[in-house]
Design a protein around this nucleic acid. Structure first.
Lengths: 224, 224
DNA sequence: CGAACCATTGACCCCAATCAATGAACGTGG
DNA sequence: CCACGTTCATTGATTGGGGTCAATGGTTCG
């Protein structure tokens, strides 16, 4: 489960429970938990970025989401088994809360459950939007949507049109239901067409946000 | 938002609040609410089936899910705007709860919020599984997964291998990220290969569940 | 009986996958 | 410091799975 901070909430939802938590650091590429693990914890990303994904037996991968600072993550279901794998994209610091203690707080702190419910509902909406993207958008629309999603996430640090891209092309491909090659070609095309600049693979400058938004929404204005 | 009954819960979560609810009937094809509507309600399906979907400006459609008896549906976000459209697949009876009253109950009834949270979390997991399907599975795997999903849903009424398929091929296609033609061809192929029987378009008999499950999981055993 | 809708099937085509090669960036160790 | 391996990104050539276009038949309904 992937949760984002509530709009208007100044502090992450789990800030209440720092007494029972423990801080964990992971280097890039390290696994926090894997699909099927029997560990039963709630995590909060403090610094860095995680990727959450599911695997098929033959290695096909679907990235469910990228989690950055402030986001909550319930790793396992009622049975205590993890339903996806969480891996560090960059070096990350996460805060771990034992599930049992977390659940107790739900009953004790008034309004906490409602807040969690709102967060989970929001996560569900994001998942539904991603279903539209995966099921119905073409490659160009997927990549444009992804760039705007990144932009939305980091409007805090200065220029809203300058984007850090910490994940690899393979991560992006597995998030968008494409291949590495198609993602790369699409970035190149967006650059060639003057919608973005791409000084290096991990840095994007948005040059024409309006057209990007039209493309992402499917208002087909990108055929040249 | 789409919710399913908690495992082990004998009654739908909203059964507590029947005092403030109203029953609504809709004929097949009728719209319960549409994306962007400002109505702020929680629904529970009593009888029949709903489809939930999102649209793109040019008419491309992604079906988010099919809801049958017992399932809960929070139509709108914190801003009160509906994030998807709900339409009757068959004739349906739904129970409507005003959001405000529903929210009050969350604070008043102990454990209710937690129960809703569990339901929402489960809905999120289903959405994540669907993301894997949409992003990484091939047509045959998608259709096999869909048939097994249908089977899971109606194991109550008698034969677990006899499935009612109330939705159209277009609904299925928009749920799986395919076209009507591909869905139809894939059903035909499954029938030809002896994995299912298809007496008519709305009735499926599962003949080889094990192979269907292998295909759905991606254990590629369906090339002939 | 005709209109509308739905499902199926065939012919053809195209977008994105696959296969393949190259270059850039980054350690790591001699 | 440089040779080497590894990983990542890009680009080109080719292919194929599923989309598109089109036609047919079944069913329902007015």
């Amino acid at each position: 489960m992937m949760l984002r901070p509530m709009p208007g909430a100044d502090r992450p939802a789990a800030a209440h429970v720092s007494a029972i938590s423990s801080l964990i650091r992971k280097g890039a590429g390290e696994v926090l938990f894997a699909e099927g693990d029997a560990q039963d914890n709630v995590y909060e990303v403090v610094r860095g970025m995680l990727r959450l994904y599911k695997l098929m037996p033959d290695g096909r991968r679907q990235v469910i989401g990228f989690l950055s600072a402030g986001q909550l993550l319930m790793a396992s279901g009622p049975d205590g088994l993890c339903v996806s794998t969480a891996e560090a994209v960059t070096e990350v610091t996460v805060c771990r809360y034992p599930r049992a203690a977390f659940e107790r707080l739900i009953d004790e702190i008034p309004g906490f459950a409602r807040r969690l419910l709102a967060l989970t509902w929001q996560a569900l909406q994001i998942a539904h939007d991603q279903m539209l993207l995966l099921g119905r958008k073409v490659a160009m629309e997927k990549v444009a949507s992804f760039i705007l999603l990144l932009a939305e996430r980091q409007h805090a640090d200065g220029d809203p049109d300058t984007l850090d891209v910490p994940m690899t092309r393979a991560d992006i491909a597995d998030y968008l239901g494409l291949t590495v090659e198609t993602v790369s070609r699409t970035f190149t095309r967006l650059k060639r067409d003057g919608l973005i600049d791409l000084p290096n693979p991990n840095l994007v400058h948005i040059l024409d946000r309006e057209r990007l938004e039209d493309i992402a929404a499917g208002d087909a204005g990108y055929e040249v």
